[in-house]
Simulated assay, not measured.
Amino acid sequence: MQQAISAMEERTRAHSPNENWPFTVTQATPAIGAYVSDIDLREPLDEPAYLALRRALIRYKVLFFRDQDITPAQHVAFARRFGKLEVHPVLTHDPDHPELVVFDKSDKKRGRENIFHSDVSWREVPSMGSILRCVECPPTGGDTIWVNMAGAYENLPEDVKARLEGLRAVHDLMPLFGAALSPEQRVAVRAQNPAVTHPVVRTHPESGEKLLFVNEAFTTHFANYAEIAGYRIGFDLKLGEMDLLQYLFRQAAAPEYQVRLKWEADTIAFWDNRATQHYAVQDYYPAVRRMMRATVIGDRPV
Rank of each mutant, 00 (worst) to 15 (best):
Q2S: 08
A4N: 04
I5P: 05
I5F: 09
I5K: 06
I5E: 06
S6K: 06
M8V: 02
A14K: 07
N20E: 10
T24F: 00
T26V: 08
A31M: 08
G33M: 03
G33N: 05
A34I: 06
S37K: 02
E43Y: 00
P44R: 01
P44E: 11
L45F: 00
P48K: 07
A52Q: 04
L53G: 08
L57F: 06
I58W: 06
Y60D: 05
V62L: 09
V62K: 11
V62G: 12
V62C: 13
F65R: 11
Q68V: 10
A73V: 11
H75Q: 14
F78Q: 07
R80C: 08
F82L: 07
L85P: 12
V87W: 13
V87P: 13
V87L: 12
T92N: 05
T92W: 00
D94F: 10
P95N: 07
P98A: 02
E99C: 05
V101W: 02
R110N: 13
G111D: 13
R112C: 07
N114M: 12
N114T: 04
I115Y: 11
F116Q: 08
H117P: 11
S118D: 12
V125C: 12
G129A: 15
L132E: 11
L132N: 13
R133Q: 15
E136K: 14
P138H: 11
G141A: 12
D143S: 15
T144Y: 13
T144S: 15
T144P: 13
I145T: 15
W146R: 11
M149P: 08
G151S: 04
L156H: 11
L156R: 13
D159G: 03
L164N: 07
G166L: 02
R168I: 00
H171K: 03
L173K: 04
F177I: 00
A180T: 01
S182L: 02
S182I: 01
E184N: 05
R186S: 01
V189T: 10
R190Q: 08
R190W: 00
A191T: 00
Q192R: 04
A195V: 01
V196P: 05
L212I: 07
F213W: 07
E216F: 02
H221W: 01
F222E: 01
Y225C: 03
E227D: 09
A229Q: 07
A229W: 01
R232H: 05
L237Q: 12
L239W: 00
G240T: 03
L248K: 03
A252M: 03
A253Y: 06
A253P: 01
A254L: 13
P255L: 09
Q258K: 10
R260S: 14
R260C: 15
K262S: 15
T267E: 09
A269P: 14
W271Q: 13
A275T: 09
Y279P: 08
Y279H: 14
A280W: 08
Q282T: 11
Y284M: 05
Y284E: 05
P286D: 04
V288Q: 14
M292L: 08
A294H: 05
G298V: 12
G298T: 08
D299E: 15
V302Y: 08
